[in-house]
Amino acid sequence: MSPRAGNTGPRTLAFVESPVQLLNVLEWAHAHAPGAGLTLVVLSPVDPMTRGQLRRMAELAREEGHEVRWEEARGGTGAPFHTIGGLMGPLRRAERIVMGDPFSRYVQLLLTITRAGELVVVDDGTATMEFVGQLARGERLVRWHRKGSRPGPRDLLFAPVSSVARRRLTPARGRRVAVFSSMPIEEVPDGVTVSANDFSWTRSRFGPPRITRGADMVGTSLVETGVVDGDRYLEAVSGLARAHGATRYFAHRRESADKLHRLAVETGLEVVRPDLPLELIARRGPIGRTVLSFPSTVVHTLPLALAGTDVRVSVCDIDPGWLTRTASPRAQGFLSGVTGSARDVHRLAAVAVV
């Protein structure tokens, strides 16, 4: 019998756009809906590396007994209309919606269609901290690295949809809202239920890993999002690798090929493009005894995924001098908060670059 057979619980529809979101939906299902299959809708991006990781995660989801619906949501001009049209029925029938990115315009548009009585937001990394804070303060939903910048024409055009989505994500009579997160959440909106993601599914499914003597580095997309200067970043990576004897660099799925090529040439690090989220890669092993990272989601998630092992996660602060002139005014404070609120990590001073 499939895990869905005989399920009398709410009909659940989950929307994901990244491998990490899909992983955290599996963690949520393991913690809150064991044995109850759900329908996972992958709103596929165009980036090849992200698509590859999503394919692998979709295989794991099917092995857990969940239905996976792959949507080429960005496959051309007519793709959004085809995707949304095909999801109208399931959206209206769903009693519970699980989503990985409440900032996504795609997800916000879908939220205007559903009348589900329960909405669940699972982790999309550090963005979850910002989402909950904005909801608590009654602010419009804006990604942290764009906050402080003037809204563009597309933002203004989409504002009515975003406003409706924000109301949908606010608890009300007949509508429950929950957040499932491994991130520290200080401001909890009235009526929102928060539960902790401790990566119990990951730990039960993979590992324990073989631990090597050396150090590994974790990449970040702060250059690609326009927050950190590319030259300063490469210099910092080089200095950190030399200081700690790192030999491998696990690339973030959004890092550009040109940047990674230059990094490999200039630092001598072996660049690894993971085929799964880093939490699963680390748990499968082999992994270095020390994992070096800049402020990012993994400084919160890796200690949980690697609980019970001897791996130490060390995080290097971002020097204000590394920020670009166009970086959000909130960037330094937000990144410092990501580091300062992390548990079970070793904090390193910013690497000096010249």
Rank of each mutant, 00 (worst) to 15 (best):
M1H: 15
F15H: 03
V20T: 13
V25T: 10
W28Y: 15
G35D: 07
G37H: 13
L38G: 07
T39V: 00
L40R: 00
V42Y: 08
L43S: 03
S44H: 00
V46W: 04
V46D: 12
D47L: 05
Q53C: 13
L54S: 05
L54T: 06
M57F: 13
R62P: 04
G65V: 02
E67G: 02
E67T: 10
F81Q: 00
M88K: 06
I97C: 09
M99P: 06
D101H: 11
F103N: 13
R105T: 03
R105A: 02
T126K: 07
A127E: 06
E130F: 03
V132Y: 03
R140N: 13
R143P: 02
R143D: 03
K147N: 14
R150N: 11
P153D: 02
L169V: 12
L169D: 03
T170E: 12
A172K: 03
G174A: 15
V179P: 08
F180Q: 04
E187R: 13
G191I: 14
T193Q: 10
A196N: 04
A196F: 00
S200G: 15
T202P: 07
T202L: 09
T202F: 04
I211D: 05
R213L: 02
D216Y: 08
V227D: 08
V228P: 05
D229N: 15
D229W: 05
V237I: 15
V237S: 14
A241Q: 08
H244E: 14
H244T: 02
R248K: 13
A251G: 14
R254A: 10
R254L: 10
E255Q: 15
A257S: 15
R262E: 11
L263F: 11
A264D: 09
V265P: 02
V271Q: 06
D275Q: 11
A282W: 07
G285T: 13
R289Q: 09
T290D: 15
S293F: 04
F294G: 13
V298F: 05
V298W: 12
H300I: 13
H300C: 12
L302G: 13
L302C: 14
D310C: 06
D310S: 15
V315T: 07
C316L: 03
C316Y: 00
D317M: 10
P320M: 07
W322Y: 11
T324M: 07
T326H: 12
T326V: 10
Q332R: 01
S336T: 15
G340S: 11
G340F: 14
S341H: 11
D344H: 14
V351M: 07
A352Q: 12
